[in-house]
Design a protein around this nucleic acid. Structure first.
Lengths: 201, 201
DNA sequence: GATAGAATTGACCGGTCAGTTAAATTATTC
DNA sequence: GAATAATTTAACTGACCGGTCAATTCTATC
């Protein structure tokens, strides 16, 4: 029950990383197995197909990321600070991955999701689901900000949706430009957008 | 000199369409040739590689699209109307392509660009170039809007950059959701963002 | 109508792709 | 420690990949 999980989890982790850095089409099952130090037969013992691996890897990745997001968006934290911390977190992760891989990688769900959206419905649907995970956090933060009056925005649902699009656009630009610069304005752009009344450091 | 161009242009057109609908990795040279009714040898007579085709197809597509953009952004047209017309144009094209292919396809430069950004520098650079083409139009429209006082925005460069990101984000979301809905708010979102003073129909 | 260069053909290459299989090894349970 | 199931191994399949090539046909010019 132990070693089993190690193999499976190794495949999930390696697969996620390779797909994130490259693309779904450019990473083969052989690539994943080689990097994971695992035989191909084992891959197909745990996953019925390459597409199933990427879906499982999405789920595993989100499972591991969620506690961090819950912490960032804890109601203990003032609402605008939650959003600011999210921006910092995104930038940190991007910087870290860029150093690790030598490329700016953008949002993993978005990259593979956009690549494969018209070709595999199961992956498409999962990408959609996870691309929208962070939206709910932003939504409740903005709702709280509205209640405490620290923001001129009126509709938390619409605002969160738009912020989500903005961040996605930024991350895609950063990936295509292979440059972290597009991310620099993220925090101020969002604060501008929701009409944050305090303009702290 | 006539039939020659027809073959080459057919390959450019079919390639662009297939890459736009699917992805760079999922469309083979054989697919393109079959759809174009052209032999593989001819493909490699005109293009040294698959990557070169996609770059050439980008260039051809932009060449054909540019007059339309020049028209939309003619200084004859009031600046905010230029931007509104651009939004309408984007939505129209997306709707048309969605009907044609059965999928919402998003921005062609962005989709392939994001897919391939970390793998092929030549394609990456071209994607970056064309993803930013529309930015210059928006920039000058906003500058004009500022001069005529129809807008509260201050910095046309920053505003255009952010609008570009917004549109990219929207198009990626639309593609991944396979739904035109995310595009609906484009015009009002942009007008909100730059602080358009008139709120016409 | 001879000639040369461009366009076209279709068979072909080695390599790689996702996925399979049967046998061997390891853990688990009684 | 025997029986059973889970896991791992490595060789294998057949289709398809991007790209090559020599042979052929077209076309423009003199």
């Amino acid at each position: 029950m132990k070693k089993t999980c190690e193999t499976k989890e190794k495949l999930l982790e390696v697969g996620f990383d390779l797909f994130w850095d490259g693309s779904y089409g450019s990473v083969s099952v052989d690539d994943i197995c080689k990097r994971a130090g695992i035989n191909k037969g084992s891959f197909y013992h745990f996953f019925p197909s390459k597409a199933d691996l990427v879906v499982a890897a999405y789920e595993e990745h989100w499972k591991q990321k969620r506690p961090h997001m819950d912490h960032i968006f804890s109601p203990q934290v003032p609402p605008l600070e939650r959003i600011r911390n999210m921006c910092k977190y995104i930038c940190e992760v991007q910087k870290e991955k860029a150093e690790q891989y030598g490329h700016v990688c953008g949002c993993p769900y978005t990259s593979v999701g956009s690549e494969i959206a018209t070709l595999d419905e199961k992956i498409r649907a999962k990408s959609e689901q996870f691309m929208n995970c962070s939206r709910k956090y932003v939504e409740s933060a903005i709702a709280d900000a509205i209640r405490e009056g620290s923001v001129t925005a009126k509709d938390p649902v619409a605002a969160a949706q738009r912020i989500n699009m903005l961040i996605i656009g930024m991350l895609v630009e950063a990936r295509v430009q292979n440059d972290l610069k597009p991310l620099e304005g993220m925090e101020s752009m969002i604060m501008d957008y929701i009409g944050a009344k305090t303009v702290p450091a």
